[in-house]
């Protein structure tokens, strides 16, 4: 059930967003993808979920090639994501947002829905029950009838996670889940990610909050200007000179030399 990213290159016109990036996410781990702004992290997410195709290379998930599939097919394969800039369905209630996530795991069509077949009613009940369970998990149980738009920022982020979890993913891609959160919300998020990990879901995480990344990730890959400059455990990454250089710039002596 591992995710393999093989030699991915992405060019937008003359801009090299990603150059020959390769890494592997093992089943059950929390894998961090970090790097300065514009390093190509979100581009990598968009390529994994086929929002656009790579210029070169391929993505393989549990021995199935994801590259070339449509985004909805990738969700069906068990890879689901959240967005850096929150993209909930604003005019739907919290509960409805989560039920949309269950779309690819359910199958009632027009006919079954209109004639209210027994199978459809049973399925609707299951969808709602599961959605409520997920809302409990992310701590939004009492907000199910609120419009998604009216939730606080941190709550919206957690609702996005619940919506993604509704599609029964084996791999969850989180794009900066802690962005804009205060310390308490970040701590809650830490607990939530731990809970999701315990459910047996592999997590690939983009995040700028370094304390959180170092605490929660089993392994980390670092991107800078579209290239992978380092990979390893949080301790290895903390002490890697390339990473320090990318984040803080070169030391003065080097510049003078």
């Amino acid at each position: 059930m591992a995710l393999e990213v093989k030699n991915i290159t992405k060019r937008f016109g003359g801009i090299h967003a990603l150059t020959d990036v390769t890494f592997r996410v093992e089943e059950g781990e929390v894998f961090g993808l970090i790097g300065p702004n514009g390093a190509g992290k979100t581009t990598m997410f968009n390529i994994i979920t086929s929002m656009f195709p790579p210029t070169d290379g391929e993505v393989v998930f549990s021995n199935k090639r994801l590259t070339g599939k449509k985004p909805y097919e990738i969700t069906k394969e068990g890879v689901c994501r959240t967005f850096q800039n929150i993209r909930l369905f604003p005019d739907m209630t919290v509960l409805e947002n989560v039920t949309v996530g269950e779309h690819c795991r359910t199958k009632s069509g027009v006919f079954a829905s209109v004639f209210r077949l027994k199978s459809q009613k049973v399925e609707e009940e299951k969808i709602k029950t599961k959605a409520r369970e997920l809302l409990q998990l992310v701590g939004l149980g009492k907000y199910e009838d609120t419009f998604a738009d009216n939730l606080a920022y941190g709550q919206q982020r957690r609702l996005e996670i619940a919506r993604a979890l509704a599609s029964d993913p084996a791999l969850l891609l989180l794009d900066e889940p802690a962005a804009g959160m205060n310390e308490k919300e970040t701590n809650d998020l830490f607990d939530l990610i731990q809970k999701i990990k315990k459910l047996g879901i592999t997590i690939l995480l983009i995040e700028h909050d370094m304390p959180l990344v170092m605490r929660i990730c089993d392994r980390i890959a670092v991107l800078n200007f579209g290239e992978k400059i380092a990979q390893g455990t949080p301790d290895e990454i903390k002490n890697d000179p390339h990473v320090i250089e990318a984040y803080l710039g070169q030391e003065e002596e080097d510049e003078l030399a």
């Binding site: 979920t49 929002m51 449509k70 985004p71 909805y72 969700t75 069906k76 689901c80 994501r81 967005f83 993209r87 909930l88 369905f89 604003p90 005019d91 739907m92 409805e96 039920t99 949309v100 996530g101 779309h103 690819c104 795991r105 359910t106 199958k107 009632s108 069509g109 027009v110 829905s113 209109v114 209210r116 459809q120 399925e123 609707e124 969808i127 919506r163 993604a164 599609s167």
Partner: peptide
């Protein structure tokens, strides 16, 4: 009835955010 079903939710999701809907597994 169609609106209050899986199909109707898919319609509404597409209307509100097509890309997000597709990322959530809806064949737009």
């Amino acid at each position: 009835r169609q609106n209050h079903s899986r199909v109707g939710r898919a319609f509404a999701a597409i209307k509100m955010d097509e890309n997000a809907a597709e990322a959530m597994g809806i064949n737009i």
